[in-house]
Design a binder for these strands. Sequence first.
DNA 1: TATGGTGAGTCCAGTTTTCCAACTCACCGG
DNA 2: CCGGTGAGTTGGAAAACTGGACTCACCATA
Lengths: 156, 156
Amino acid sequence: MAATKDPRPCSIADALALVGEKYSLLVLREVCLGNGRFDQLVRNIGAPRDVLAARLRRLVEAGILTKRVYSERPQRFEYRATQAGLELEPVLTTLREWGDRHLRKGTDLPMVVEHSCGSPLVTRVTCEACGGVVRHEDLTARPQAPGWTLTGPATA
Amino acid sequence: MAATKDPRPCSIADALALVGEKYSLLVLREVCLGNGRFDQLVRNIGAPRDVLAARLRRLVEAGILTKRVYSERPQRFEYRATQAGLELEPVLTTLREWGDRHLRKGTDLPMVVEHSCGSPLVTRVTCEACGGVVRHEDLTARPQAPGWTLTGPATA
DNA sequence: TATGGTGAGTCCAGTTTTCCAACTCACCGG
DNA sequence: CCGGTGAGTTGGAAAACTGGACTCACCATA
């Protein structure tokens, strides 16, 4: 009598439940750029103030951002990325590169990120174990959750 | 008299406009796993059928998926990732690793991905130019869009 | 030929979210 | 005192999402 409705258990889905709402990743983008004040976020992201306030609460609660006082009297706050937040930066980097390549065809880029080595950042995702570039064909997914196979729920 | 409302021009925002809606990246997850049929997507993702149909239309239109007939009479379709779609896989990989680490603390993972080298995939993002690991502190963002600085719109 | 099942959607009523502008509240600078 | 800034909250209208039920075409089998 199990609800035949539960989706596949998955860390991607869980992560997206936290940062997949509209504007959340853009908040992280601005915070990573060092723009952590409320009004800055409103201007640079273009989100409604109430939605932004909700996102910020959620991200702080999830341990992705912290809210820090940078001035008592007038009390002023600043949001900063935690370690967990910074570890999401590769998601932003990958999305930016993808957008640059596929949506702007590599020209008229609105923002260039430079690596400390001096060149514009182009990233490569490698396997930590063997050092090789990771391609789709080299990956094999192994579901571990009980009741689930690669293709879907076990008919059980 | 420019609308003081335009957000920062940004490829991340543009990319998210395409794949940032609820379920879109989960569709890509399933398609990358080889599960490209409509009913499979419904079951494995848990999305309402009409929302899923809308997402699929949009992703096909954006050139991220293709719709392929795998059986005439009974006509049956299958969605597959295009090259552009496959290039979004690193986003999924990063999100999965982040979720595994921060949401499940590395235990009871619902899905393990194995690299062709034989070990469970753990990725590293490196700079293509110098080969070094990319860290937040090593990045410098340079806005190129006219009217925009790192911190926000130029007062013009 | 009737019965049931699959695949791929569409339709609909009801609930949530989102959007946007306006408003608050505290403080500061002149 | 007046205007401005920072950080939100409030209140509706508009859009998106939700969970079924429904369609339509095509087998399979009995």
